[in-house]
Structure formats: C-alpha cells, structure tokens
Amino acid sequence: MEIIEILLTVSFWAAATRIATPLIFGTLGELICERAGVLNLGIEGIMTAGAMAGWMAVYQGADLWTGVLFAFAVGMIFGLVHGIFTVPLGLSQHVTGLGLTLLATSLAYFTYRMILPDVPSPPRIEPFQPFAIPYLSAIPFIGPAFFKQTALTYLAFVSVVVVGLVLYKTPLGLALRAVGENPAAAEAQGIDVYVMRVGAVMVGSGFMAIGGAFVTMSAFNAFFFEMIAGRGWICIALVVFASWRPGKALLGALLFGAFDAFQVRLQQALGGDIPYQIFLMLPYVFSILALIVMSRRAAYPKALMVPYRKGER
C-alpha cells in the first residue's frame, strides 16, 4: 500500500519529470537522426560534451540561455562530424558513433581540466530555477507535478510538439522521413539526400547536447566526470520504445523517469535488507519489459543504418 501512496504524491511526479527532461531532449535528438536514416551512437558523448560546454560557458560569465545555445552549437559540431563520416563517406554508423562517444567524452573531460586545472571541489554556477506556469500550475495534482519546473523542462515539452509538427506537417519533415525510408525515392524527387541527412544529424545532436546541459545547468549546478551515466544509451532504447514518434518519446521518457524516481523512494521505504543495487536495477528491468511489450511491432525507418550511395541501385 505504501507503494501506491508513493505513486499518488505530487513530489514523486515532479521528480519523475525532472529525471525525464534530459531523456526527452536526448530521445528527440536521436529520433531526428534515425528518422533521417542515421543511427547516432555518439549520443552519450554528445550529451557529456553538452553538459560540460553549457556549464562552462555560464561559469565563464555567460548567461544561462547563452550557455544552452552554446551547448546546442557544440552538439551540432559533433553532429557534423558524425554526419560527414556516415553520410557522404558512408562509414559504419555503429563504429563512428561509438568512436564519437569516446572522443566527445574525452574532449569534454580534457577541456574541463585544461580550463580548471586545480580546483579542489567542483565549482558551482547559479542554475535554472523552477517557476510555476500561470493557470497550468493551478490544475490540481498535474499542475504542481509538471508545471512547477525549470525553463528547460518546459523547453523540452515545447520541443516535443515542435518536432512532431515539423515531422508530420511540413515539407521539410516529409523530406526528412523520406530520406530515412527510401533515399532513392527522395532523390528521384529532387531532394538532396546528403544535405537532409547531415542536417538532421546536426540538429538532432544539438538536441542531445541540450539534454546534457540540463543535467549541469538545471538538475545540478556543477560538472562531474561520469555524470551523464548512461542516459544517452537509455535514449537509444527510448527511440525504439517510442516507435520513432515524438509523442511516444515523451511518454517513454516520463515512464523511465517514473521508474527511476520510484526506485529511489522504494529504497527509502524498503531499504535495509535488500541491497540498494537491486533498486538501481529496477528501472532498466522495467524498461526492457516495456520495450518488449511496446516495440515488437515497431516499424523501423526502412533505410535506418543503410548508407546511401548516389547512382547505385
């Protein structure tokens, strides 16, 4: 019964939303890349780089939004690297992506140490503060849970809507989906497959970097090593869970956030006899189960992971 009480508290859902926010950005970013046919396993590294870049910009005196923009730009640059390797050069998306994760992570740590060679404890910044959205936050239960968050969380919600609209309601979105489904068809209709794909990977990577920046600029106020802690990999699974749809991506991220918030509370409620690692494991177990239930019939973008070579058919 304790368990059900946990699920009914506002603070639980507020925490779930907070945990979900970087996942929403990361999943959207990955979704954009994959809809264009490019798997981006650089996500873990790009989120780390975004976390470092955004935080560092603010620490060096920029304001918070400039920091977010800077993180986005850094993400786009890494996206450009991934895009060039995988699209015109047609290299393995797996290998390039994993390499990019190693590169971006290491570069982030290296840069951090270069700029701050000897700080005893991680320096702090003044992070984004939660604020209530008028009217929406007045809705009972839902209001305080979802609409007393920081600006980046609201940005994540808005991004879901915007990405959904762009994908399904604009010529650009149609072209993006087409290059991920059948690049030859897109080219026969006069669309430049390379430009579309590289562009999508860049924008998607920018979103990932903002997801990383949320961790250092909103959830916490400092940058630590290993702080992204596998969030990127979760996003890869969430994209499949979401069947490549932005709305479902939001749902999946919130669900994972809820699992994670739940295990923390469960540790407090049932802690003692059971090793805490068991609780840490739970969200991942639930995610795998959810993936099995939700994604068996998922329709992959047909050209996902298939490099497109012009003139070859």
Binding site: K169, T170, P171, L172, G173, L174, A175, A178, A185, A186, Q189, G190, I191
Partner: peptide, 12 residues
C-alpha cells in the same frame, strides 16, 4: 507530395 513543395515552407 515529396519534394514538390519548398522545404522552407512552414507547413505542407
């Protein structure tokens, strides 16, 4: 429809 409308167009 693919490719028949300008990619800069805000909606299909």
């Amino acid at each position: 429809l693919l490719g028949t409308q300008s990619l800069a167009r805000p909606w299909l």
